[in-house]
């Protein structure tokens, strides 16, 4: 993967494409936006289907409630804004008006993670997986590239119930192909290995792939899993990885507190305890900077994954 020349496309673009496709196929799709219609790519849908687009202004709580109303009437609303505002500002609305009622609302949180860049801490969502994971009925998808984002968007409609999709602002390497399998809740093993398993989601999958290549040079045979659905998490895949490879590294562009790695660790500890190392953001807010600089700054590079892998191996009995 490392040697290949890969296209760079933001995952939000994949969402935008998927949404238009859905809009053409299904008249029940409606789209809501909280004054971030261009940034979230909701405007791609709006251009083609203005009558099924609803702007709510800067009012995320109202947007989620309105989406719940649409869902009660059998529509399939996509409520779109930045991840920080979707998951944080409107959390109680998502809890009561969406998750508790198990309504068919799709929540689109773009600009997730530090790859937002210069806008800084208030705009870099580092908590969505944690915040959404604790809600019963909620499904969370973190696509690794634009193609997966498109497929996740389209697939999300076949799942009746709340879905949160975490997307990014900046270009991400397109590492999947149309022919690859994609099923919500089913992890994808990108590379088999016997020494340890690296689980990643979002654009960290690419970084983890680079790390696997590095580890190989040191004679370490790592398994790599694209865990695009942090919830419901693919337990079988995790238990198999723990029992077959005996060490785990979880990689996320997100806080490690209660996030993606925690979700994996919960399964490991209860079913097949083996060492787990986390690569992610540790109890900090984001800062301004270019995405590339920030990945370095927060220790989210392949080299950090390599180091975590070696530490996990050392802990292996």
């Amino acid at each position: 993967m490392a040697g290949e020349k890969l296209k760079m496309v933001p995952t939000r673009d994949g969402f935008g494409e998927g949404l238009i496709e859905l809009g053409r196929k299904n008249k029940d799709i409606v789209v809501l936006s909280a004054d971030l219609t261009d940034s979230t790519r909701a405007n791609w849908f709006k251009k083609e289907f203005p009558e099924r687009f609803f702007g709510l202004g800067v009012a995320e709580q109202d947007m989620i409630g309105t989406a719940a109303g649409f869902a009660l009437m059998g529509k399939i609303p996509f409520a779109c804004t930045f991840g920080v505002f979707a998951s944080g500002r409107a959390w109680d609305q998502i809890r009561v008006s969406v998750a508790y009622m198990n309504l068919n609302v799709k929540i689109i949180g773009t600009h997730g993670g530090i790859s937002v860049g210069p806008d800084g801490a208030t705009h870099q969502a580092l908590e969505e997986i944690s915040l959404m994971r604790i809600l019963p009925n909620m499904t969370i998808i973190v696509p690794c590239d634009a193609l997966e984002a498109k497929r996740a968007t389209i697939e999300s409609v076949n799942l009746k119930g709340p879905v949160y999709i975490r997307l990014g602002r900046s270009g991400a390497h397109v590492i999947t192909k149309e022919s690859d399998p994609f099923k919500i809740g089913k992890a994808v093993c990108l590379k088999d290995g016997k020494d340890l398993t690296i689980f990643a989601c979002g654009q960290m999958v690419y970084e983890a792939a680079l790390a696997c290549d590095e580890l190989k040079k040191d004679g370490i045979d790592a398994r790599l899993v694209n865990m695009h659905t942090p919830k419901p998490i693919d337990k079988d895949c995790i238990i198999k990885a723990a029992s077959q490879t005996g060490a785990i590294v979880a990689v996320e562009e997100h806080t490690i507190a209660g996030g993606f790695g925690s979700a994996i660790a919960e399964v490991v500890i209860e079913n097949c305890p083996v060492p787990v190392k986390f690569v992610g953001i540790r109890d900090r807010f984001g800062v301004s900077g270019e995405p590339d600089e920030l990945f370095e700054h927060f220790g989210l590079r392949a080299k950090n994954i390599v180091q975590a892998a070696k530490e996990a191996l050392a802990m292996k009995r």
């Binding site: 709580q61 409630g65 309105t66 989406a67 719940a68 109303g69 009660l72 609305q93 809890r95 008006s97």
Partner: peptide, 19 residues
């Protein structure tokens, strides 16, 4: 609707009305 966390009903009403 499920309710109890105050302030949420009117938004839902609007969604139903728009639909």
């Amino acid at each position: 609707i499920s309710s109890g966390s105050l302030g949420q009903g009117l938004s839902i009403a609007n969604g139903i009305a728009l639909a």
